[in-house]
């Protein structure tokens, strides 16, 4: 074994170690956000987002450690399916949360949707409360 291959291995190990720690940090951030943020919408930001970067870093670490290119297409497909589905679930929960008023209006600096909702409700003969 030549010293060069050893150092290449060491570099790959070091890079994947950094990726894994930072990826796990993103999950930790999500947990902290879930506990600390005040309402459903802000918690959605914390809960759904670290998956994008955290999963990316962890999948990269897996790919680096496997040391075979066959595994990369699966990892890419896994990440792309995450990218396609995360915003949909976040949107559905966020939308349902907004409609059922699971938010604190005093923590919003502006709400440009409320007027539109009120107007639409008025046209259909519904009023708030």
């Amino acid at each position: 074994m030549s010293p060069e291959t050893i150092s290449a291995d060491a570099v790959i190990d070091a890079v994947s170690a950094v990726f894994m720690v930072v990826g796990a940090l993103m999950s930790l951030g999500a947990a902290i956000g879930l506990l600390r943020f005040p309402d459903l919408m802000t918690r959605m930001h914390a809960a759904t987002k670290p998956q994008v970067l955290g999963l990316f870093l962890l999948l990269c670490a897996v790919g680096l450690q496997m040391r075979t290119w066959w595994v990369w297409p699966v990892l890419v497909v896994a990440w792309i399916f995450q990218l396609l589905t995360v915003p949909v679930s976040a949107h559905m929960v966020g939308r349902a949360g907004y409609r059922t008023k699971h938010l604190h209006p005093e923590l919003l600096s502006a709400d440009e949707l409320e007027a539109v909702v009120q107007q639409a409700a008025g046209e259909r003969g519904f009023t708030d409360e």
């Binding site: 940090l25 993103m26 951030g29 902290i32 956000g33 600390r36 943020f37 005040p38 919408m41 802000t42 930001h45 914390a46 987002k49 670290p50 994008v52 970067l53 955290g54 990316f56 907004y98 923590l107 919003l108 600096s109 502006a110 709400d111 440009e112 949707l113 409320e114 539109v116």
Partner: peptide
């Protein structure tokens, strides 16, 4: 952008927490 914003949300979660101010923008 994802990397920068991920750390920003992490910072907000740790430092601001319950006092964070948001908005719904059209």
């Amino acid at each position: 952008k994802v990397v920068a914003a991920s750390f920003q949300v992490l910072y907000l979660a740790v430092v601001r927490g319950p006092r964070v101010i948001s908005a719904v923008v059209a």
